[in-house]
Every structure is written in C-alpha cells, then in structure tokens.
C-alpha cells in the first residue's frame, strides 16, 4: 500500500531543480469518469474526466470558484458527486461507508487551513490515525510519528499544541499527520494559500521532497514554480470544467486555449 517513503529511507535533500525520479507507472489509481456535481442549482463540476497514474504528480490550477478544490474533495468523498464515476484504487465511490473509510485511509489530505486538532499535542495529532484506524501499536505509531516529524524538520515541537506553532510549522505537521497513515496518494488543497511568504518555502520543500520519492499527488495550488519543477501534468480548470491538461512545459510555454492564456498572463503579470 505504501509506496516510496518508508521510515528506513534516508532523507533526500530538497531541491527544486532535482531530476524527477522515479518515473510514474502505467497503473491508473484515480479515475474520474464524467463527474458532475451541483451545489443546489449551481453546476460546480461539469463532465470532469481525469486519470491519475501511480506516481504521477498532478497540479490543478485555475481561477477561484473554478471547482478545483471540489474535484479533489470528491476523491476522498468529503464532497459527494451526483453523476459519473470516481474510482480510487479500483474501488468505485458509493455511499458504502466501509469503502469510503478504506479509501480515506489510503488517501492523505492536506488542507488550506491545516485543520490540526487543537486539543491534542503535535505527537497525539500524528499517532491518532495510525492507532485508531490502522490499529498500529502505540510504540510503533510514536516511532513513525517521530520519523515524519524529523522529515518535516520539527521533531522538537512534538509535545507542543498546534496553537503554539507558526502557520508553516502547523502545515508541516499536517503533512506529517497524513504521511503517518502511510497513504499511497496525497491530496493537497491549496496548502500554501494561508501562509506568509517566508513560510511557503518550508512547506513547498517538504512537498517537493515527497514528489521526488514517487508519491502520487494531486495538488491544487497557485504556486506555478512548484508546478513547473515537479508536476508531470498540469490541469487548468475554469467554470467547473477542465479547460486544458498538459505537461507543465507545454502548458506554460504553449497554451492551446484562450482561457488558459488569459489566466497565465494574469499570473505572470503579478
């Protein structure tokens, strides 16, 4: 289930320019097939088709309100879609609670607002999932948690409460919390949007490192530098539709659609 990051592996130096390794596989782990969703009368997702392969790093970008967060929130069923199929690891998402819990166990998610549990210490935040969901023995869960805290470079904060940490530190804890579940897929929902500029880098470094180890990632973000350097695929969404999907090199250099050009020019301008 867990591919890539094991506690025994040595830490890879984070570097934005490092070569993309390893190559992604052929196996499709997430398939969205004609997905449609409405919030009341508002048609928020329109015929979304997307395949994500094992080890693929997908960046989803687009103007706000384009439905990009909704897409990834549908993948672990935080939102329910009304039409079409979403297949994760071969399991089609339905109302079957057990299937949903199994998928959530294997799909980590990082939120814009961190959503750490404020009444628990950092360490307790990290071991909660492994102990209660994966039934990992406490000792092993603590070891894993400390390993990932070191990976995100804040082992000394283990006994603090989230409220005592900076935003960047909280987001790194949130990433570590997801990784402690040893997921095979990670979803990032604008992980740096709520951060001060100087904290964005410390979070992006962790994400780059993760990407280089072959984690399957779908990342909603406005960080175009991140998209350019680590993404295999960039998906551009507008008005609930996937407008364009290509490698970052192609999409940034040679956008096919007028809407994409318009969006990119605005981003580059500022």
């Amino acid at each position: 289930m867990s591919n890539g990051i094991e506690p025994t592996q040595t830490t890879v130096e984070p570097s934005v320019d490092a070569p993309k390794t390893p190559a992604m596989g052929e196996e499709v782990v997430i398939r969205l097939d004609n997905v449609n969703k409405w919030f009341g009368h508002f048609h928020v997702l329109k015929d979304i088709n997307l395949d994500v392969r094992r080890g693929e790093r997908v960046v989803v970008c687009g103007p706000s309100g384009s439905g990009k967060s909704t897409v990834i929130r549908c993948i672990n069923r935080l939102e329910e879609h009304q039409q079409g199929d979403i297949i994760v690891n071969g399991v089609t998402l339905t109302n079957d609670v057990k299937a949903i819990e199994a998928i959530r166990k294997d799909v980590g998610m990082v939120f814009q607002s961190f959503n750490l549990f404020p009444h628990l210490t950092v360490l307790e935040n990290l071991i909660l999932g492994p102990i209660w969901v994966n039934k990992t023995p406490r000792k092993e869960a603590v070891d894993t948690a400390m390993y990932y805290l070191e990976r995100v470079k804040i082992p000394e904060q283990a006994s603090k409460y989230p409220g005592q940490l900076s935003g960047g530190q909280q987001q790194r804890v949130a990433i570590a919390r997801s990784l402690c579940m040893k997921p095979s897929i990670m979803l990032f929902d604008e992980p740096t949007s709520a951060l001060d500029p100087e904290m964005i880098k410390e979070v992006l470094d962790v994400m780059v490192e993760l990407a280089q180890e072959g984690m399957t990632m779908i990342c909603v973000t406005h960080e175009m530098g991140f998209a350019r350097s680590v993404a295999d695929t960039v998906v551009f969404m507008a008005d609930g539709q996937i407008v364009e999907k290509n490698s970052p090199k192609e999409l940034f250099a040679n956008p096919q659609e007028e809407r994409t050009r318009q969006f990119l020019s605005q981003i580059i301008q500022h």
Partner: peptide, 17 residues
C-alpha cells in the same frame, strides 16, 4: 469548525471514533 470534521474524516476515522 467544519475543518475539524473534515480532517477527522480524511484520516478515515469512523463516525464514533
């Protein structure tokens, strides 16, 4: 906050957990 419910859900915790 709704995020607390979502974070718990995304870890795969059951309703009672």
């Amino acid at each position: 906050p709704r995020g607390q419910y979502e974070a718990a859900d995304s870890l795969g915790l059951s309703y009672w957990q």
